[in-house]
Amino acid sequence: MLGIFGQDRAKSKARREFEKEAMPHLDALYGYAMHLSRNPADAEDLVQETYIKALKNHHRYQPGTNCRAWMFRIMTNTFFNIVRAKKRRPMVEADALPDIEMQVAEHHQGSGIYRPLEEQLLDGVISTHMQEAIDSLPEDFRTVLLLADLEDFSYKEIAEVMGCPVGTVMSRLYRARRQMQRKLLDHAVNEGIVERPEVNEDGVIPMDAFRLRGKRAKKAG
């Protein structure tokens, strides 16, 4: 009897320790789960699954290390397992995307010739498109974006969560954001909020447009 009681006490102590460490992350994990699974019921299941897995593997967790990153890692892996099982949203091999896409995206947003879109883009009109743009990202891009912009993890922590090098985190994050910026720009152009920037496929500004801009600037000046 004593033995049984002793065992119970020990168990509940481990459990208490686990809850003390893991429970403070509930809100953050739920927010992440909401964005990953896109509906509250699935999100709650995912959170619960994550905690159960974490408890089962708690002996592998080294006290004093980053508990938050550890919990997020479990959730990310759990989610990817579900996705793979359901084949709901096939994974795109992120690093297999052609580099040219990134370069074009960079030209689109990076050449500094555009009118300030964001005030309009981000104020209501386009916020409905924001979710679309996020949803259109491949899962592993989206995950990295969520970890960075929703959960405020550092690159190093994201690398820990995703189990990949920091360089991969950086490139995924970079591409995710560029891709979104481009999507939002497309929406804005389609809805007539802004003009299509005068850039052709190669990212070169046509000469006529260039001269026109010069004249316009002169007039304004």
Binding site: D27, Y51, E118, R177
Partner: peptide
Amino acid sequence: ARFREGVRKHLRCDEAPSHLRGRVCAGL
């Protein structure tokens, strides 16, 4: 920076529903 801030603002979400903690504990 504005774009990044816009994404962050958009992503911000509510805290977990009050019953979730209980549900998780029960699951554990």
